[in-house]
Design a protein around this nucleic acid. Structure first.
Lengths: 225, 225
DNA sequence: AACATTTTTTAGTATAGGTAAAAATATTAG
DNA sequence: CTAATATTTTTACCTATACTAAAAAATGTT
């Protein structure tokens, strides 16, 4: 048996990731019906090296991985994740609603969390006059207006969204919303950064937006930037 | 001026990525109010190396980056992206609807594409009796039922979703849908893999789901796996 | 079976990835 | 303001490895 020398602390991490990385690179290459030679040519690397990477015998540098990923028309991040099975159905009749202390806004979580999941979604219900403070954070997000109407302001530019309208934008742009209407606005929010957080267990079953349980503020704090 | 030796083809890519990588690592470390020493300790690396990486003077190996990312409680992919500003608002009155040739299903795109964007969203309108063939692909997705009802089947397990219900799951699990109802079902689809593709320019402005323009099939083909 | 193509393996090496420690800079306490 | 401490940067160094060219093996095609 081949004796393995003592590995550095992070070398074990490296060894753990390589088989998954190589396997996913190979899977993607096969999906595109490419040879190693053509990927090597596109990436400016040797075919032997591509073979070694795909079989987990060596770890590419970041620069090389970037080249390979570009040759495979795929984001680097795609190869560095560990997806995991998971699903969650929600039914309107049994979904739980949450609110922050002032009770002007409540939400119902639609998405679940599983390893590698990026998608986060909640239904947000805002009472008339309610304003969300300007914020920016990582990721991207979109709103779809189920009911009512709101004003969305992104980097100082405001616009009105009504029932059936939507908006999709990069979340790093400072944004805020305001329910300028006379009725509660319901918004389906979907994004790649979980800004609503995981609320604690609810006190009540599904209630109208005005009757929901409250819990301490701070749970929904986001980055200060 | 320091003379730079001739760089390999991929070295230029590497040099391009390092400043952004280092800057985003430093930003995240500051966000967590950590010192380089504490990140180095958590990652099993030296503080000098962390400094060089953050200032873009060297590129970490994948293993080291994985250790650093773990120390910063962040996915590797987060540091390897190039976000770009972009947004798209859609208004129900002016959104364009598309259909595949058989016209049983049409959709209206809500999301836009910008560099680094992962979020894709469409409204899908399925006539009664319409079935989506079983499929699996990368990413994750969710549906929210705006109108009507459908049966969703994931890995052989079927369940009914009605107006106001939702489901969120990993897309690698074989899934299909069927409008078992007596009216058109409208579904807000949101996912991290763009399985609907970019449709060509529409022939008509917004029409009812039954009156939409058609275009050649194949545009919406997905992976065979 | 012969040939072509693709992948794997071998032998080799230049240097990138990483270190320890010193130096410089920033922050804090008195 | 100064001294002490903490943090970051820089230097000098080294070796493990990222990557190559070419040969060998495996697989695919005719």
């Amino acid at each position: 048996m081949h004796f393995l020398p003592m590995l550095k602390n992070n070398a074990q991490l490296k060894d753990k990731s390589a088989p998954d990385l190589g396997a996913s690179l190979r899977a993607r290459r096969k999906e595109l019906t490419l040879t190693m030679q053509s990927v090597a040519d596109a990436a400016g690397l040797s075919v032997g090296f591509i073979s070694q990477v795909e079989r987990g015998l060596t770890s590419p540098s970041l620069g090389s991985l970037a080249s390979i990923a570009a040759a495979l028309d795929t984001e680097i991040g795609h190869f560095l994740q560990q997806p995991s099975a998971g699903s969650q159905t929600t039914h309107e009749a049994s979904r739980l609603a949450y609110s922050v202390a002032d009770a002007d806004v409540s939400y119902e979580r639609l998405s679940t969390s599983f390893a590698g999941s990026k998608l986060h979604s909640v239904l947000v219900h805002e009472t008339p006059g309610h304003r969300m403070e300007p914020i920016s954070h990582h990721g991207e997000e979109m709103f779809y207006i189920l009911d009512g109407e709101i004003t969305v302001e992104i980097e100082g530019v405001a616009e009105v969204l009504r029932k059936g309208d939507s908006i999709h934008f990069e979340s790093c742009r400072v944004h805020s919303t305001w329910n300028h209407g006379t009725s509660t606005a319901s918004i389906l929010w979907c994004g790649t950064m979980d800004v609503f957080g995981d609320a604690p267990a609810p006190i009540h079953k599904k209630a109208s937006p005005q009757e929901v349980a409250t819990y301490p503020t701070g749970e929904t704090n986001n980055d200060e930037k």
